[in-house]
């Protein structure tokens, strides 16, 4: 343990608690946003990140010749927008989100360093905190470029993120405020 959060100044423990509460709230809204725009099933995630997700006929590879299809649509269908992340948007999403995920993982890891955990447990939790965003984005890219079956990797990344946060929040809160000795 590089430092001990349990016996740290009240202000430090208050800061860590508020950081965890704020991150937890943002994670809840993150889950809500995922439900709105992508969904929690592999099928929905594959529709969002897979190739040509806005079309019912998903094509993995560009056709040899340009293919045109036409179908009737209602005004409501034109107004409805299925959230589909194409390659350009995924480049932008990756660029924007990865640094923030790294900062969050680093912040939570700093909290882990101040908890009375074994070296191997500390390493495992830190690995989980950083593996989650990597899995999340690796899943999105693999779903787009390789196969919609990789949507499961993105889901695993999302759940890993929630798990990592929950472990750190529960242990830190318990250690800082209840188990002081």
């Amino acid at each position: 343990m590089l430092y001990d959060l349990r016996h740290s100044d009240l202000r430090v423990r208050w800061l860590v608690t508020l950081l965890l509460a704020t991150l937890g709230t943002s994670y809840l809204f993150g889950a809500w946003m995922v439900a709105l725009y992508a969904g929690f099933s592999p099928h929905k995630v594959a529709d969002t990140y897979g190739p040509a997700g806005e079309a019912m006929m998903a094509m993995q590879m560009p056709p040899e010749t340009t293919v045109v299809t036409e179908r009737p649509v209602s005004m409501a269908e034109m107004g409805e927008e299925m959230h589909h992340v194409d390659k350009d948007l995924l480049v932008q999403d990756t660029h924007v989100h990865m640094p923030m995920y790294a900062v969050i993982a680093a912040g939570l890891s700093l909290i882990v360093l101040g908890l009375p955990l074994s070296r191997s447990m500390g390493l495992a939790i830190i690995a989980l905190l950083f593996a989650a965003p990597w899995l999340d984005f690796a899943g999105m890219w693999l779903t787009k470029l390789a196969s919609p079956r990789f949507a499961i990797v993105t889901l695993a990344g999302g759940w890993a993120m929630a798990l990592g946060y929950t472990i750190v929040a529960v242990i830190a809160t318990y250690q800082m405020w209840w188990r002081k000795s």
């Binding site: 079309a55 056709p63 299809t69």
Partner: peptide
């Protein structure tokens, strides 16, 4: 109608 063009 939606005319969908899958471009080669």
């Amino acid at each position: 109608a939606a005319r969908e063009v899958h471009v080669s």
